[in-house]
Nucleic acid binder design. Structure first.
Lengths: 228, 228
DNA sequence: CCTACCGATCGGTAGG
DNA sequence: CCTACCGATCGGTAGG
């Protein structure tokens, strides 16, 4: 604690600059989810927030850093809105279902006004080279790998047919989630998400029963304490 | 025919202007498939083609018309490379399979350097309002409706299980095609298209056999001449 | 956070 | 198809 003479000017009040910084990123995320990361311009964000261009610029020092921080901030929201609720379910098939549902719910609730931020960036940067492409590639690999890992765990626990190909099923689940996102946005109709929901439910049901309804009769209860 | 005095100046030689027009659209399509329709600028196309900005501009008179003509020209390529080969197969399940394979082959062959032009535009304009969004919505509806129609025909011909939901199966096939496009581009790996191929083959096999391998024993041969 | 500025580029026009 | 422009906006800098 310092002398009281600093009292009236709120000593080390960091909130002013930080709040502005956060407000810029919030606007940037919203804009980029609708129009893409390359549509971000410093001038446009400044206009939207009612501050000067250089006022925005001072927070990032380059457009590249603005883009980087925007992607990172969107990643934190994705983590909070999708990964955390998805991973909070008990390990195995339940967790896989929870993750898929968390994603679809996040699309349905329009966490980002333009739909899934990363689905937009996937299409925007799949054919472009550079740091954003590379980050998206690693994001996608991580996501698909995580889903495939959950499928493997569910197989080990006897909850899914051992004949299931984890990466192939992960691809199909992911495909349903992505298209549900795009089409629900395109048609401005959140109920399109239900098509994705049904595709996922059916795919998991088939992998549960096996392709011919041959179901392993008594799956082992599994070990809730063992890590993946 | 006119007098010979016009001979040396090639009367009504249209090829010059038309070739330039076509060359501009070709460059625009290629650029837009990689970076999106909004990344098109008249100056950039002019630089790439080695002509002046106003030389490009004169062909379209507005950026909006350039974008419209670019989308239309890409549509013609899609028709030639996907729809025509897909629809050339005999009506029914064979046609449905041919259409899916025509799409995957078009992705694999990199008909557009940035992958499927319309998959890119779907993500770019799903959350934006305006004429391009509206055209993409109608394109998507048309495509999904066509696929669903082929599924209906295949059901009527006894080639697919009558319990199949045409729009739901169309959604799942479409989802596999789109993700195959995005991921094969993202990883610069055409073999990712095989994941989509397998997803489609499996989905059709399930719809052929029914969910439990209960297959209608003697499907009617169908009528190849009747329209859909 | 501001004003004031830089060179480059944008879509578009005028006139040929 | 060209040169020569227009006002607006871009990312970024200087200096406060």
């Amino acid at each position: 604690m310092q002398d009281q003479e600093l009292d009236t000017e709120e000593p080390r009040r960091r909130s002013d600059g930080e709040q502005t910084h956060a407000a810029i990123l919030d606007a940037a995320i919203r804009l980029a989810s609708i129009e893409g990361l390359n549509s971000l311009t410093i001038g446009r964000l400044a206009r939207e927030l009612g501050i000067s261009k250089s006022g925005v610029f001072a927070h990032f020092r380059s457009k590249e850093r603005l883009q980087e921080e925007t992607v990172d901030a969107a990643g934190e929201i994705f983590e909070r809105e999708v990964l955390t609720p998805g991973l909070s379910a008990p390990e195995g098939l339940a967790q896989l279902e929870a993750l898929c549902e968390a994603y679809l719910s996040y699309v349905e609730r329009r966490v980002f006004p333009g739909g899934c931020f990363f689905a937009h960036l996937l299409a925007e940067f799949d054919a472009q080279s550079g740091p954003v492409h590379d980050q998206m590639e690693s994001n996608q690999r991580g996501w698909l790998g995580m889903v495939a890992g959950m499928i493997e765990t569910a197989i080990e626990r006897g909850e899914l047919d051992p004949a299931t190909d984890p990466l192939q099923l992960a691809f199909e689940l992911h495909a349903a989630m992505e298209l549900a996102n795009y089409l629900s946005m395109l048609h401005r109709d959140p109920s399109v998400v239900d098509r994705g929901r049904r595709a996922i439910r059916d795919a998991l049901a088939r992998a549960t029963q096996g392709p011919r309804g041959s179901r392993s009769t008594s799956p082992s209860p599994g070990n809730p304490q063992s890590g993946g």
